[in-house]
């Protein structure tokens, strides 16, 4: 038996279905109520990247984002799922516009008194460098849409792994009303390789996996209150957590608006002193969250 098959059997034994092993389409389907999945701008609409073929790169027919409408406990919902296998889940003009455009329509519906529950499945390295400035621009539009939409309904983000969520899209994750991570997920602004490259190996050795996980892994992020729920790689548990997050309603204060709390927290940090993941957990553990 192969190692992968052994893991699968073990999971079945535990009664779990892996979310991480699914593609973006299956992930979106598994979040929504059974039978309610309806894809928008699917592969046969052929809205591909206009920029990749100009650089000799084959484009995927859906540009790596699956948009689906459906229901969550019977209520209208929208899921945007990023396919991390295609171009590292990077945001290009089309893939980004699909997410921004869908959030903008959800906002329109909310403003007309027809709430839509938005879920973002974020597996992405951030901007697609081959579409550089258009990727950055559309990420700003995604941020704008989340901030506007979040005044009406909670926006729920899920980072399951294995890619994690980085770059400008880490800001999109941070703008979500609630964030759900698995233990296999990482959330950070700059990928470890980029930090090593920009700041030197003395700052961060990207090959030191244990160190990287202790900084930005799901468990650490949850322990210090930067995310709301920490789960195993279990599709059923993730779908349930998404529903529970909506059931809580709008947070008292969005995390990205907790300015005084975080400025106080930073004021207590001495950048001249060493600080690691466990030390930060000791300082920030149990601090007030909405």
């Amino acid at each position: 038996m192969s190692a992968v098959a052994a893991v699968r059997n073990h999971r079945q034994f535990l009664g779990r279905t892996s979310f991480i092993e699914m593609g973006a389409r299956e992930r979106a389907r598994s979040i929504l109520d059974e039978g309610s999945f309806r894809e928008l701008l699917g592969p046969f609409d052929r809205l591909k990247s206009p920029w990749l073929p100009l650089q000799g790169i084959v484009a995927q027919a859906d540009d790596g984002v699956v948009l689906a409408r459906g229901t969550l406990d019977g209520k209208p919902a929208l899921v945007a799922a990023i396919e991390s296998i295609y171009q590292g889940g990077s945001m290009g003009e089309v893939s980004g516009a699909k997410i921004a455009g869908a959030l903008e329509l959800a906002l329109r519906d909310c403003e007309q008194g027809k709430p839509v529950l938005p879920v973002l499945l974020l597996e992405t390295g951030g901007v697609r460098l081959q579409e550089a400035n258009l990727g950055l621009a559309v990420i700003a539009e995604i941020h704008a849409a989340i901030v506007a939409l979040r005044r009406h309904v909670p926006v729920i983000g899920v980072i399951s792994g294995m890619v994690g969520c980085f770059g400008g899209m880490s800001l999109a994750a941070a703008l979500c009303s609630r964030l759900i991570l698995t233990r296999q997920a990482r959330l950070g602004m700059n990928g470890p390789e980029v930090i090593e490259q920009e700041a030197g190996i003395a700052e961060l050795d990207a090959s030191d996996r244990a160190l990287v996980w202790s900084l930005i892994g799901g468990e650490q992020r949850h322990a210090v209150g930067l995310v709301d729920d920490l789960l195993e790689d279990d599709a059923v548990a993730i779908a349930a957590s998404v529903r529970a997050a909506f059931a809580q309603g709008l947070p008292r204060q969005e995390r990205s608006a907790q300015v005084e709390l975080y400025l106080e927290r930073l004021a207590a940090i001495d950048p001249q002193q060493p600080l690691d993941g466990p030390a930060l957990r000791a300082i920030w553990h149990g601090a007030a969250q909405s």
Binding site: S170, L171, L175, L226, Y262, R265, L275
Partner: peptide, 22 residues
């Protein structure tokens, strides 16, 4: 770009600024 920055959530700090402007 820094180890400490990642640990302390520079992604959230930048999001907080974007949030405020928006």
């Amino acid at each position: 770009y820094g180890r400490r920055e990642e640990l302390l959530g520079v992604h959230l700090a930048c999001a907080a600024a974007a949030d405020a402007y928006a």
